[in-house]
């Protein structure tokens, strides 16, 4: 059974078809990278998987269960799928710790005392322990993104979605955040990333999907896509992106 499976997913915004019949499988513990030009539909696809956008057609399965049935309560699904965005992730009126505690407390009904040690451990693990009680505006962009990841992890998700989480960062901060992703991968987390970091995708991805105009027009291992791309569009895109 695949961890995530998409069948002919169609998403439209008005007349604009942003996902145009997407088929995608993600295996357990796999890291899948979505690459493609701006506007190709990467973010939208991730939002569809997390049920933040209702889809017009197709199905999405999580562990073989159709989670795209209209009317299904999305909360239970979202609790299993963590997601980190490009920016404005953290709630500015809460400290890093409070940000992290909010969802476990509200969704799982756990108390602060139950959560404290666990969350402290997470912050420790991602070298953020000294930042735990800072407000987001007291953190660097890279630290903010790492806290956002920690916050998602606190819900013990089975899958993590990352939407260009480094693209709003100063170049020298990008490395720290990508290191966190590598760490997660080594711990066996199933991940789907939309990214413009081609070098990273090339090194770390188990599978790379190239999106254009809402379609996955080529997919394969990172060696296949980056080494021997078949489609001219892919070649053109990579030529530009790797320059």
């Amino acid at each position: 059974m695949h961890k995530i499976e998409l069948h002919g997913v169609v998403k439209r915004f008005g007349q604009n078809t942003v996902c145009d019949g997407i088929d995608l499988t993600v295996e357990k513990d796999q890291m899948v990278c979505l690459i493609g030009a701006s506007g190709a539909g990467k973010s939208t696809l991730l939002r569809c998987i997390n049920l933040l956008e209702p889809i017009e057609d197709g199905e999405i399965y999580l562990d073989g269960e159709d989670i795209s049935i209209p009317g299904l309560n999305p909360q239970r699904v979202r609790a299993k799928i963590g997601m980190v965005f490009q920016n404005f992730n953290l709630f500015p009126h809460m400290t890093a710790f409070e940000n992290t505690m909010l969802a476990p407390k509200r969704v799982q009904g756990l108390s602060k005392s139950q959560l404290k040690s666990e969350i402290e451990e997470l912050f420790e693990r991602f070298e953020l322990a000294d930042r735990m009680h800072n407000y987001p505006d007291q953190l660097s962009g890279g630290q903010q993104q790492r806290v956002a990841i920690v916050r998602a992890l606190a819900m013990k998700p089975e899958v993590m979605l990352f939407d260009e989480i480094t693209s709003a960062l100063d170049p020298q901060l990008v490395g720290d955040v990508l290191d966190v992703l590598l760490k997660l991968k080594s711990q066996g987390m199933t991940m789907v990333l939309a990214t413009h970091e081609m070098q990273f995708a090339r090194q770390a991805a188990d599978k790379v999907c190239f999106l254009k105009d809402g379609k996955i027009i080529e997919e394969g291992s990172s060696e296949e896509i980056f080494g021997t791309p078949k489609r001219p569009e892919t070649k053109a895109f990579l030529a530009r992106a790797l320059k």
Partner: peptide, 11 residues
């Protein structure tokens, strides 16, 4: 994005 972020946590 604040809404999206919060929803994605399962709230």
């Amino acid at each position: 994005s604040q809404r999206s972020a919060a929803l994605s946590l399962g709230l």
